[in-house]
Amino acid sequence: MRKYLVRRVLQAVPILLGITLISFFIIHLAPGDPLAMDIEGTKISPEAIQIRREQMNLDKPIPVQYWIWIKGLLRGDFGWSFQDGRPIVEHLKERIPITLLIMGIPMFIAVLVSIPLGIVSATRQYSLADQCATVFAFLGISIPNFWFGIVLMMIFSLWLGWLPATGLKTIGAPFSIADRAKYLVMPTIVLATGQMASLVRYVRSSMLEVIRQDYVRTARAKGVSERLVIYKHALKNAMIPVVTILALMMPGLLGGALMTENVFALPGMGRWTVRAVFYRDYPAVMASLTVSSVMIVAFNLIADILYGFLDPRIKYD
């Protein structure tokens, strides 16, 4: 196991390097010039533009720019944002905790609700509960987040006046969990609904497949109670594809959710990343991509390890 871990972590290094290299070149291939954003509408002279270009290293060939960037990264320096000149690390420090909060709670709720709901759906196939769960899942998948967000806002903020429409906290008020909760209700509903919807479907179909297996029939035949059959024999096996889906969802913890962040004015990573792309803020875009790639690689590894626990037939050596 330890050997396997070491090998996987070592493998991750070239993978991550490759990702950053390819993304770096692709970003620079996109039309647009970060400097143009900066100087549009100002009466700046061509000489001053040239000086600015040199300060941003934009005058150098792209491979050289990549080399400068990767050298900085190895020292833990993501560079500075072209938009406001602050170090990217400072931006990340502001954004990551907030993103974890606004993404983590819905994900937690989604997992908590959708696994039991999926199991019920599968074991009582075509029952009323199953039908409801199916309708809910399809609604959850097909309703666009920004629209759902606005509808909730109209109901709970405009008509009922129960919840504040946007923001993260009452400005100027002392910190309290109740205050934070009030602001997080609607974004949480929006995000959790979407995630629950797909998870329920995965749990359901994976469970359906497992309960038709021979070993489940054997367990039933030898007189094990239905509850034990489902929760002891079937569930663990049914979890393997679910773990894969979860591992794919986890990087979103730091990736944020653009539409929801926009509607509810939450300062998460999604908005930050998209604005960085929009402004051709290369250092910010690269930082966001690097964080996401690390998350993806790490959670893939974690999923692989979990498979071993769920199914003893899977062994790593």
Binding site: A133, V135, T170, G172, K182
Partner: peptide, 26 residues
């Protein structure tokens, strides 16, 4: 068809919003 999602949302919302609804006062 609507029952489950609506009930879920409303309960969750009520639970969490019960914490207080006063307008923001710095």
């Amino acid at each position: 068809k609507w029952l489950l999602p609506v009930v879920l949302m409303v309960t969750l919302a009520m639970l969490l919003s019960a914490c207080g609804q006063k307008p923001a006062t710095p």
